[in-house]
Design a binder for these strands. Structure first.
Lengths: 344, 344
DNA sequence: GCCATTAATGCAAGCGGTTGCAGTGCTGTC
DNA sequence: GACAGCACTGCAACCGCTTGCATTAATGGC
């Protein structure tokens, strides 16, 4: 039904190769011929079949973008920035969601491999070795994971975690909890490493809980452990967990930040709209999306580009952190459980 | 570099057509031959090129999914459900985000058209006529918009809006505001129509504000108008706006639900985690995603399927709505601006 | 006036698969 | 023993498009 290059050729009385060139190398065809062909094409509603073109040129002008969970508000800004950047180079982004499942992840890379020019793998849950193997089948740029030999864009969460810890220590906290992220997350490992290093010191202690689901429910679920841990401050793997955690603590009568300080990571839009507003480590997700696309597109030019882009993070101090209160009772409930709160 | 069907044929000493059949019609090839071919294929790391297959079969086994804004938490459950359902039928979903832009929307449909078997168009911002035109170029299933002659999946937001209004009226509210959605949104029109109908009655009034961006910021921005409107209750186009609105009112010293009641629409995960928890109209987004995929896949069987699936919505009453307070001062600030609040 | 250039177009081979049709050898039937 | 039927495999055309090369005509230089 849809018209092909042959229909246009017949209609305009030229050979199909001339039609082809009209679209992919216009300077090679006579001005008059060109406009005649274009008119016919327009009239027939002809659009080049990109799949067929891809078959022979090897370029699809599509980029695959694989994320662990579209529902995690951390990703959309990255996705949108990548889309915008791709569009700027006349490419399109196909997004796919792995549901935090390493198996699905592998499957999706393979499924996309042949229909895109390359894949951006964001916050992968696969093993490094599998990623290396896949990178031999399709150009890959990894986001939020550092693998030697592979081009990557990472955000310096270690630095962010350190800043967060220093902030908390500066507020007088001594017993600090880390609500870790999911298994297989490079970011979570980085945070953990940096947090341990930053907290190290006399009279200080880091309590690690996890792995946890990187969602509100993950935060909700860890509230109990946090309460029992006696920590007076928490660094959460991400804002979503932090928000869930705040809610979980709230239902237990524990107030944030009076009774316990919470720091998130990511600075999602939402963290400005919760009460209390969330202190968090801002990650440059949009910049990461742009950089990853650029990296992938540059891939073609000189083969083995194994650059690593490391983007800075920064601490945004809002209302979920406060100096260690004098009662120093840790996460134990306040004596009179929050009678001054708004009803909930 | 990647091995083709010819490489496998050479390695296993058969004709390419036999290799082809090994993958697409295994029952036609001898068991021994098949296993030999499979072994060679495995060893060479051969994977059928889906683009090439699509070229001749006309089926890509891919489905395009276009949404207005990935960052809107309304969509992810729909996307995830669609992905799961598609996977069940051995198809893949490509998601693309239009940034609420009708132009980009059209461009994306066209870009996807040739690389997918059909497109799910969610909450389109285009005109009906353009959608009809596009549906002639590629099988289309529209979600959240009803267009005669086109297969569609809609959620009965009109019913939801009616329930919400009845709830508010039942609580004694007489002057109710509607924070409308973006221009071009069918859903917003439906809500408006239903709300007007439901509020109609002696001494009652509906104040409509908008169009507004369907985001937290949209809600934040409309807080001022709402305050001045004197309304004691608001139905927001979606939960995100409702949450932004609550925040905006909060900074103006107006308490929810004591001073003003708010109802959202969508029942996103978040609406259970805000304070106050949001009263909202739950929309069956996951069911919509599944239904849309099923509809699109059924498209092939008997051509012109113009079914319409209308999914029920329901009102979830939480803490952001309350009986009209006796002071009846509407959205005017409380006399002593919320000294009992938690600090923010 | 001849030849080398140049511009414009046609020709045909393929990209990596699928598929209708035509063999080939074998079995079973009468 | 001839033949129909079956299971398997090969052959070759084709899907829609690109591209190196050949062809043609027009142009310019000397």
């Amino acid at each position: 039904m849809p018209s092909t290059i042959r229909d246009v050729a017949r209609a305009s009385g030229v050979h199909i190769s001339t039609v082809s060139r009209t679209f992919s190398a216009p300077h090679l065809v006579n001005v008059e011929t060109r406009s005649r062909v274009l008119a016919c094409a327009e009239q027939l509603g002809y659009r080049p079949n990109r799949a067929a073109r891809a078959l022979i040129t090897g370029r699809t002008c599509n980029i695959g973008l694989i994320v662990a969970d579209i529902a995690n508000p951390f990703f959309p800004p990255l996705i949108k920035a990548a889309e915008a950047q791709a569009r700027r180079h006349d490419n399109h982004i196909f997004v796919a969601d792995t549901n935090e499942d390493a198996i699905v992840e592998e499957e999706l890379v393979r499924a996309l491999a042949k229909q895109v020019d390359g894949v951006l793998l964001c916050s992968p849950r696969m093993s490094n070795s599998l990623i290396e193997q896949l990178s031999r089948e399709v150009p890959l740029v990894v986001v939020n994971r550092q693998i030697t030999g592979l081009p990557a864009v990472v955000m310096d969460v270690a630095q962010g975690a350190r800043l967060a810890m220093e902030h908390l220590i500066g507020l007088g906290h001594r017993r600090i909890a880390l609500a870790a992220g999911p298994r297989g997350s490079w970011t979570s490992k980085e945070i953990r490493r940096a947090a341990m290093l930053a907290v190290r010191g006399p009279g200080r202690e880091l309590v690690i809980t996890g792995p946890n689901a990187p969602t509100e429910n993950g935060g909700l679920a860890v509230a109990d452990q946090i309460q029992k841990s006696g920590a007076t401050a928490v660094l959460a793997y991400n804002d979503l967990m932090a928000i869930g955690l705040i809610e979980g603590l709230h239902t237990r009568g524990i107030r944030v930040p009076q009774d316990i300080s919470i720091v998130g990571i990511d600075d999602i839009t939402l963290s400005r709209l919760t009460r209390p507003k969330l202190t968090t480590v801002a990650t440059p997700t949009a910049a990461a999306g742009r950089a990853a696309v650029d990296m992938l597109l540059a891939y073609g030019d000189d083969r083995r580009t194994t650059a690593l882009i490391n983007l800075q993070t920064e601490l945004v101090i809002r209302d979920s952190t406060a100096p260690l209160s004098s009662q120093g009772s840790g996460a134990a409930p306040a004596v009179t459980p929050s009678t001054t709160e708004t009803p909930s």
